[in-house]
Design a protein around this nucleic acid. Sequence first.
DNA 1: CACTCTAACGGCACTCCGTGCCACAGAACA
DNA 2: TGTTCTGTGGCACGGAGTGCCGTTAGAGTG
Lengths: 226, 226
Amino acid sequence: MSPVTPRRGRSAAGRAEVRRDLVTAAVDLFTAQGYDDTTVDDIAAAAGVGRRTFFRYFKGKEDAVSPDHERGLARIAEVFATAHPTEPLVSVVLRAGETVFDLYLSDPETARKRFALVHEVPALRDREAAMVHRYRRLFTKELAARLTDVDDGDLRAAVTGAAVVAAHNQALRRWLADGGTSDGTEACRAYFRRVAAMLPLEQAPDLEQVARRLERAARSLERRTN
Amino acid sequence: MSPVTPRRGRSAAGRAEVRRDLVTAAVDLFTAQGYDDTTVDDIAAAAGVGRRTFFRYFKGKEDAVSPDHERGLARIAEVFATAHPTEPLVSVVLRAGETVFDLYLSDPETARKRFALVHEVPALRDREAAMVHRYRRLFTKELAARLTDVDDGDLRAAVTGAAVVAAHNQALRRWLADGGTSDGTEACRAYFRRVAAMLPLEQAPDLEQVARRLERAARSLERRTN
DNA sequence: CACTCTAACGGCACTCCGTGCCACAGAACA
DNA sequence: TGTTCTGTGGCACGGAGTGCCGTTAGAGTG
């Protein structure tokens, strides 16, 4: 799909490395001297590139501390696209959600700094909320396409999408509150899977109704036998 | 609590009217010539005030088209604070969510324009997402405080909070898709209440009790047939 | 090796957002 | 009537984000 694009231009470092340097510079500067007191010039200078180059890698100052959400969204879409039609929807949803954990946790050190920043800087909080919104919309869209023949399919899709994303965030939050060990991915996945029982995807059998039907059948049988 | 603050300063119009003029000017200008091509100077000039005054009424350009979310958040908090302890949590959640509909729909005309703008302008979409995030956090916080003795209480709170907010938005979206009649509040409430069956708040039916009832019915039948 | 082509880079200039500061006007109050 | 209080407008400033363009390092070609 994507042939190895050769590195060109004056710098010897590839694009990925420049981006990484900018992220680390941004995270360190934001943490050290605050978000508002850090200019884009500061970040670019700390990473050894020009200010103009910064905006070629990030849409804005707020994006400098974000993981690559485009990749995360693409992974989720791929899970839905390649899932076998007979696989239960709950399973697909769980697999899709799990693929995003390592995007957040691949570098635990950076992850913790990032969480701290996102937690206390309003601009970064809002930015993260906007990204969460995109994840939620993607889940909802994919679910709605698969719940067309179910009662309240759109509502179920909206609720399930929101629930999945919320559980994902809750798992990350829980991991962070527990100290943030390096093997957070597995812990997050285990916690995240508990959401399966809370999703309104499968019609829960109405046991009350089942019991009444059995009782009625028994009474009917009773009359017959008399 | 808040005594009627007298209107002061040079202008004869009160604060509420200045704000309303700014909102209508912003909505009209954004709709007519686009969000990016409308400067704050344009809005202020159209409303007949200085540019500096605009920023005394709104934190930024994106807030000029938002309803008063602080009021909405306050209403929700009040419902939770004044709810009777024995009221089922589902009922409290539904009541809290319903109080916000008229905040969005009080003026259907403005509501439709606002929805259209928020839908197509990325900056306004992100802003709305950030506000939705605050609603979700509030619901989650209030729910978590009432689910401390339940299995996976935090997760249930996070999932339920997200689900309620998602259902709220879905109701508004549905109302808009159906043409946006003037009596949208009731329609939204009715649709919104359907989310109750999808919330992981109530414990699953007691299967042990169901089994006992079946056993009793069987024994009764057994005695009769003997 | 010499040449061309290409993509990334850096710098400059520009618009606009958001804010701190200050002077001013008009209504309330003593 | 004078004082105070509060909302207002003007001005200037820093910083974000963008369009434009010359420059440069590497890849490909002969």
